[in-house]
Nucleic acid binder design. Structure first.
Lengths: 205, 205
DNA sequence: ACACATCTGGACCAATCGGTCTAGACATGT
DNA sequence: ACATGTCTAGACCGATTGGTCCAGATGTGT
């Protein structure tokens, strides 16, 4: 897993494996695991079949795992880049939403969440599911860490992280449906982060 | 579309078409459009291939459209059944979440949202996308209607409906990841429905 | 120069894919 | 009895799928 993000230790500038992972991540997030054939991935990555089965002996499923991990790491970087320079949780969350929205607008690609597209649509393989769960929890953990770092008490931070995750997934989906990034930009308003207002929060439960 | 929910007007107790639609809806929502082959659907519905191409001349895509429509109608019924006997928006939303959570617990099937699984994973066909968008907007419209009926002012109702939709989709996804219906039951607490508390809602935006 | 490990290139495969086609079962109206 | 339209049943098809295999190109250490 760790050998993906960093280039191979030897000075080899031939990133066939990387090309495969990136191509797979992009295609899977657009059309899901079963929606993309190996031929398409190989064409996009300009790699022959032999190379792929050299780097990923278990074939498509191996590649899917690796590409999901890579995509998840990209998201983690995005989270860190958004929260690190921020002074409050809501500011970080807002930055993240805007970065994500910008990404959609600039690329024009209304892809789905790479992990759910790649691993959730696949065979109901237990390994796929647990890996997806692991990656998702990694997102929540990362947000939780920043929430605590930015001053939220432990319990509030956990709630805020999970809440933000839910909003992000739901908003991502609706934005894709409408092809409108405004949905994502409006998400932070739904966080309802109230540093000190315990009483009379909701009507009932 | 309307001929799906109701049985054929003549007294024909042979619901092959219905069996196909239900089987397809269930399988698609579990593993996505491309994740299910016709053979599997036909086996599940106990129907031969000829029957299917009689009822759905355009094959798999036709069946997917019909099954997504049917599944969407089921959700609409669930929405109506939850909000109609309720006295407030939050109460209706809470009921809906609990009904959905119960469904997951009872059936033990942690399927995904039938529409996004069926239509969003399919070929990036424009028809699929617009149909999915249409169905989703139908959900939001239905919730919006009940929100207004239960006393929310027009603008608040629209916001609440969209907000609830986002929470439901995001929560549904996280519940599937964790196989824990508690996530869905906890959603209404995130609605933050405050009938009369204009001041000091959020910190910043 | 040599051996060795890594990686590439693509031919080849069985299995499955979605889709077509037709023969006949079945109910119905006349 | 007969014709008609609806629906069932499954054999069959070409295309594509993921996967296997191996010859050979390439780089590296000695």
């Amino acid at each position: 897993m760790n050998d993906i993000a960093a280039p191979q230790k030897a000075s080899k500038p031939r990133p066939t494996k990387d090309r495969l992972i990136r191509a797979a991540a992009q295609l899977f997030s657009n059309r899901g695991y079963h929606g993309v054939g190996l031929a398409e991935i190989l064409a996009e990555a300009q790699a022959p079949k032999g190379s792929m089965y050299h780097h990923f002996p278990n074939g498509k499923s191996d590649l899917a795992m690796a590409s999901a991990t890579w995509a998840s790491d990209q998201i983690l970087l995005l989270i860190a880049a958004s929260f690190e320079p921020s002074d409050s949780f809501v500011e970080g969350a807002t930055t993240l939403c805007h970065k994500l929205a910008d990404l959609f607008e600039v690329t024009g690609k209304w892809c789905g969440c790479p992990i759910s597209s790649t691993l959730f649509e696949g065979p109901d393989n237990a390994e796929f599911h647990s890996h997806a769960a692991h990656l998702f929890e990694g997102w929540i953990t990362e947000v939780d860490y920043h929430a605590q770092r930015l001053g939220l008490p432990k319990e509030r931070a956990a709630m805020a992280a999970q809440n933000f995750y839910i909003l992000l997934q739901g908003g991502w989906q609706l934005a894709r449906v409408r092809r409108d990034s405004q949905v994502i930009r409006a998400l932070p308003a739904l966080l309802h982060y109230k540093p000190a207002a315990p009483g009379e929060a909701c009507s009932d439960t």
